[in-house]
């Protein structure tokens, strides 16, 4: 932090010099070895959909950016785990593995799904707006409450669902 970056320059955090850990209560702690430690930081992805493991920003509780990590994989194993766990919580976007039922009624799509975080039923309104085609079969689905779901490749879901989605995306 002592060397302030020039305007417009990215301040990369050296993965060899930084560490992430959880406090006993569960807050994400950030340490730059031999320099400083922040009791609670927030981290997030610059490209959460396209490249969630790269360009990770680190901010303090006052929303000041402490720097950017170019790639999670450059961090030590323990820090990597902390960061991945945190991002998994921060970006709550369960991956839909299968759809047992999809029903359309009065413009609402009722989904019964199994996700990587357990089973979930949800409703999507305005499917043309809220089922977003990210390309190559990948979908981002936003339900009536603003919950987000990811589908890696909708072609692999059950055929009835594929037909319905084919007509939409």
């Amino acid at each position: 932090m002592s060397n302030q970056p020039k305007f417009g320059e990215i301040e990369y955090l050296n993965p060899k010099e930084i560490e992430f850990s959880y406090s006993s209560a569960g807050a994400l702690r950030f340490t730059v070895k031999d320099r400083y430690s922040v009791i609670k930081v927030d981290i997030g992805c610059c490209f959460p959909l396209k490249s969630p493991n790269h360009f990770i920003w680190v901010k303090d509780t006052k929303n000041n950016e402490l720097g950017i990590i170019e790639s999670i994989t450059d961090l030590d194993q323990a820090s990597q785990k902390c960061v991945k766990d945190y991002l998994r919580k921060r970006y709550y976007m369960p991956n839909i593995n299968s759809v047992s039922n999809l029903k359309e009624e009065f413009g609402l799509w009722y989904w019964e799904t199994m996700t990587d975080r357990g089973s979930r039923n949800f409703v999507v309104k305005d499917p043309r707006q809220n089922i977003i085609n990210l390309g190559q079969g990948r979908l981002l689905i936003i339900d009536v409450d603003g919950n987000r779901f990811n589908v890696d490749n909708y072609d692999l879901l059950n055929p009835k669902v594929v037909i319905m989605l084919d007509r939409l995306v």
């Binding site: 209560a25 807050a27 919580k89 970006y91 709550y92 976007m93």
Partner: peptide, 21 residues
């Protein structure tokens, strides 16, 4: 407010406690 979820946190004298998501 996180992305797709939210979290309640309690600040104590020494720490910040994430209560529940």
């Amino acid at each position: 407010n996180l992305v797709g979820s939210g979290i309640i946190e309690a600040t104590t004298e020494n720490d910040i406690v994430p209560l529940l998501q």
